[in-house]
Nucleic acid binder design. Structure first.
Lengths: 147, 147
DNA sequence: CAGCGTTAGTTGCACGTACAACCAATTGTA
DNA sequence: TACAATTGGTTGTACGTGCAACTAACGCTG
């Protein structure tokens, strides 16, 4: 690709961002359509905790790839809504674990299916094999950058 | 995938967002490493204009998939920095075209190679064929949602 | 133990973001 | 022509975001 034929809309970066953004928008729509006040930013944290409840806050930071200040504030909000609780570690008082409350766990039955539905909508009509390849490439891209 | 085996970090949405985010972060690093004060948000607009100079502002909105208010503010900043100019349409005074200035065009020689380099870094060691498949899937995902 | 560096988390700040309300110009329709 | 509906763009607001400065707790080394 030379200097002059550069077409940003055919670039990997553009495609990536576009797909990611529209998928997030659609998930948000699904939530609000079901009267769930659940911004994507909160969902990212909840989904991570559904996989591993009781993570240290710093682990949330590396899994979600946002600034630690951003995570602090998001957890503040979720805590205020009684969806998660922070528990300070006894051995090392710098650490704080984040746990789902009963309410937080219960929300999984509502949120999970909508998330799965969104992924199904996204991948409709795309061969399973291609999805797999795509996911592998996405992982590889991430790993290429994290070294 | 049933309710209990749900692993968010293996989900398409997670992979997408992670790859997109880390790629943006790396591009930003490349810019700052070359003493370029160019946030990704501005680069998105510039890159779009490098493909099609003189787009209507509303066309920038649909190509970049952000809110029109967000685009208004971003173009304000670029205009203040003498990188683009807004020109009102004579026939239909609601429309405004956005043009690159001489300075804006000149920046392409610096920014373009860094963007290409970032994509090369991202795709290092990945077979060309798989990249192609991935791009096709990303496009399809977008189109699945835009209907 | 004292002091230095490191780490987890919080906070201040500037700016990006979506959403909604708004304004001005245009179009459609009676 | 008059008036409603639509469209492109701007602005207000609330909140997300990265960065940097900060605090508290821990570990290391003298």
């Amino acid at each position: 690709m030379d200097q002059h034929s550069f077409n940003p809309e055919e670039s990997l970066g553009y495609q990536l961002k576009r797909a990611s953004r529209t998928m997030g928008q659609r998930l948000r729509q699904h939530f609000t359509a079901h009267d769930l006040d659940m911004p994507i930013e909160h969902w990212e944290i909840l989904a991570t905790l559904y996989g591993h409840d009781g993570l240290y806050q710093r682990e949330l930071v590396c899994r979600i790839f946002k600034d630690k200040g951003t995570i602090t504030r998001a957890v503040n909000l979720l805590e205020r809504m009684n969806i998660v609780v922070r528990i300070q570690d006894e051995q090392d008082k710098r650490n704080k674990r984040v746990y789902l409350t009963h309410k937080g766990k219960a929300m999984r039955d509502q949120l999970g299916p909508l998330a799965r539905q969104t992924i199904e909508d996204a991948t409709a009509g795309i061969p399973e094999k291609d999805i797999k390849t795509c996911m592998e490439v996405l992982k590889k891209i991430y790993h290429n950058f994290s070294k």
